[in-house]
Design a protein around this nucleic acid. Structure first.
Lengths: 344, 344
DNA sequence: AAGGGTGTTTGAAATGTTTCATACGCCGTG
DNA sequence: CACGGCGTATGAAACATTTCAAACACCCTT
């Protein structure tokens, strides 16, 4: 420590009796400096407690060492799993990951993105409130690598990584139909969330294809994708007269499904005998529920990892081409829909 | 955009026909510049798509606009709730929050902290693998504000914010004893985790004070604080001969408790009649379980918020004094221990 | 008309790195 | 002994901001 101020390369240089440039070389190209001086410089660094100033490095070098992920909803473990996948890829590339959370608020999201731009992050991964937002395409057009996660980006100005949500909705409802259900609730909302729209759409499509009457696929809208809303949907479900009441429910995500499950069991319903439940995402807590939850699995970590690789490619590869990666969701059948499930 | 390069203040100045300093003033002290020129400069900025370079700002101003939180275990929602609390406080102070995750690995933690030092973050909030780690006190001694979250820091070189874990263990087991249980399992491990040690210690203390035989408080060690380990503990519990088997379990955190709950219900046990369960942390999923979980609540967001305030005080207030804040945990009784719970 | 404010703008220095052309020292070769 | 060549070390420029003393312009007093 030099009189309170944190020491700079200059201090190190003086203390080691070499020039600025040499200190820099020790850090960035150790092979060009002789072992003896390197030794000396390293000792000086340790003695002074030198810590390289990343701002100065970045300013001069023009390149930052961070990636950023702006997630949509911090209360949903799904996004943390995605983040974990990104983190792993970032670690491999020796980059730091900056994680932000918009909490589904568009203005908060924009504040975060704005700051990330100021930091000159290498690339931005984002699960946006609205993937069509003009400011996003604007940023991408300026050459900042942007990858949309869990939605497909508009207009081909950025890469995106997502799961086929329509297909997800299809296999969920197909599974329920296979189990013999002919009155099914679809729980999810608000419609403003693209994922919800598509999952519901998939459900409707396959329902029609199976030749089942549209009125027997009952949409229970929710105000958000939360456990509490799942419970509330459960109450509404219980209010439906028995002969019209669905025998199964497809929830737009696992949080809803867990809420519905809790409410139903609390009300004395047997799951799956009296009410079968399918969730979406396959978060860890889905498998951990008292009645393990059947769910449409998204490859959460893989999603993140792939997104990170795309953003890195865009940042480093001069002839990068934008691509929209689509993963195929997979039904994981557990006790909430089948009495003796195949998978656990 | 100026020939590919992202525009700088210099470009804005030229385009608006003013000097560098004026552009800077528009950004940092708009009140000193006349409305007319401000207008002109702002228009130029918008036209060129100017984005302030945070590295340069920070380098010159010497002060960064970010806080960082290094969390211990990204798979545990508890830490995300803490992070959320920090984020709120950071937002109020107009700072960004950098979130890292050590995943309980000491070397990963150190890599993260090292980078944060290089970034010259205003302060570091951390739930460390080992709060006694020498490198942490080293950093604190250099004057970087460090706050230990969810543990009490060693040696008074930093602030810390935590819940009284011993007390938490006490009220959990006291509650079970009140319900008439005289054989209780304590589920948790590894011992290397300080929180676990103290919670178990609290359980033992109160057990002894109640005059119950030590052998009837049965410690089931686990390798980690996860749902899977909770399940495995459940299997071991089931293996205990009926006349020796505990009628209640206190788990060192909610993930364990959820795993135990799942395993027990799956094995046909009635909860709480045949096995009562208490968790710790009171994460959202505890209340959302099929049998809502009794848990020792930590004020998660409050913990984060308080920690952020301490770090900010240390960063800005010249006569800051280190303090160890201790919050009092609170038992939230739900259906997993009482047939008709008071709280939901 | 000179002087003194006041309000606005300017220009240069400073921040801590990296980079790169240049200089240096030394050895072996011709 | 001079010279090219090689391995190291150097010093200055550059990066994009902020800051601050100084300059400037203008108006109001006296």
């Amino acid at each position: 420590m030099v009189n309170g101020r944190t020491p700079s390369v200059k201090d190190v240089a003086r203390s080691a009796g070499v020039s600025l440039g040499t200190v820099s070389n020790v850090m960035n190209r150790p092979e060009v400096v002789s072992p003896a001086t390197r030794e000396r410089v390293e000792r000086a660094m340790a003695e002074l407690g030198f810590v390289r100033n990343e701002s100065a490095r970045q300013l001069r070098a023009g390149t930052s060492r961070t990636l950023a992920y702006v997630m949509l909803d911090g209360t949903n473990p799904f996004f943390h799993d995605v983040a974990q996948g990104i983190e792993l890829a970032a670690e491999d590339a020796d980059l730091s990951l900056f994680i932000c959370n918009s909490n589904s608020r568009a203005e908060r999201e924009e504040v975060h993105v704005d700051r990330l731009m100021q930091q000159r992050v290498q690339g931005i991964l984002i699960t946006p409130v609205n993937p069509e937002a003009a400011y996003l395409t604007e940023i991408a057009r300026r050459g900042i690598p942007v990858v949309i996660v869990d939605r497909v980006g508009a207009g081909g100005v950025f890469c995106s990584v997502a799961v086929d949500d329509v297909l997800g909705g299809r296999i969920a409802v197909e599974h329920l139909a296979e189990q013999g259900h002919t009155r099914v609730a679809v729980v999810g909302g608000p419609e403003s969330i693209g994922q919800v729209r598509e999952r519901v759409q998939g459900a409707r499509e396959v329902w029609a294809e199976l030749g089942l009457p549209p009125d027997d696929l009952i949409h229970l809208p929710t105000a958000a994708l939360t456990v509490a809303e799942g419970r509330s949907a459960g109450e509404r479900l219980a209010g439906i007269p028995a002969r019209r009441r669905p025998t199964a429910a497809f929830c737009a995500n696992d949080l809803l499904a867990l809420g519905l499950l809790q409410q139903s069991i609390g009300a004395g319903l047997r799951v799956p005998e009296e009410l079968a439940i399918v969730g979406f995402d396959d978060i860890e807590f889905a498998a951990a529920a008292a009645v393990p939850l059947t769910s449409v699995r998204q490859p959460r970590q893989e999603l993140g990892r792939a997104a990170a690789q795309l953003v890195l490619d865009e940042a480093t590869n001069p002839d990068h081409e934008h691509q929209q990666l689509t993963f195929v969701p997979e039904l994981v059948a557990r006790a909430s829909t089948v009495v003796r499930p195949r998978a656990y």
